[in-house]
Amino acid sequence: MKANPAIKIFGLVIAFVLVAPTIIVVATAFTESSIITFPPKGFSFRWFEEVLTSRQWIEALQNSLITGAIAAVLAVVVGISLAMAAARGTAIPRTGLTTFALMPMLVPLVVIAIGVYLAFVQIGFYGNVFALGVAHSILGIPFVFINVLAALTNLDPRVEEAARASGASYPITLLRITVPQILPSAFVGGLFAFIASWDEVVVAIFLVTPGFKTIPVMIWSQVREGLEPSTSAVSTVLTVVTLVVFGIVALLNARKSKRTATS
């Protein structure tokens, strides 16, 4: 049954309100004036220039990228490991393991943040990309786990049986047969894990130091002081990177569904 025109119009209005904030931030980044106005006055790359030539912002950008990469790699390895036990393991109940792996999605971010803060500061593990990468990996694990679990359930068990029957040991089968087949799904999960770290503030606030900051933390401290066009410019960079990564995910998913449709 088709929706009637009134609902379609309402839907369009809501859709517009949903995207308006994103558009406004991007638009205000190109202003010529030194305060945020809408519609923006003139058009310039002034604020992008200011951000991209500032040592502080460049360092924050590097920190964010490296932290995200560390978080993603850790989440991929741990997510694959957990998914294998959940999909085929014995001795540990599957629902228990699944709930455990999804737990980081259920526990509020603030709680993870102060938990990690209390624990990591105890051992002096903070203020660098590794500490924040490890902390952020927690947030990415569920994404990898979900993706890999689905992939493992869809695998043809006969391929592995064939490898085993041909004399391959379990570890060799895992590395040469299973992992290559689930790697595309794990990669998509890893991209999600990267983004989960890339725009994360709450956990980061607790683990940063004056000498080590990430992009979202810098934005966070800036917006608490006042509204500046440079914040819009950084926000635009942040958003574009996120959109590119999700674009890759969408492309990979489209390719995957095309492949399954033709096979």
Binding site: L74, V77, V78, G79, I80, S81, L82, M84, A85, A86, A87, R88, G89, T90, A91, I92, L97, F100, A101, I138, I141, Y170, L174
Partner: peptide, 16 residues
Amino acid sequence: RPNFWTLAGLPGIVYL
């Protein structure tokens, strides 16, 4: 009895 896949899951469980 824990099978091979449970063992493969141990590093992940310990890490989390």
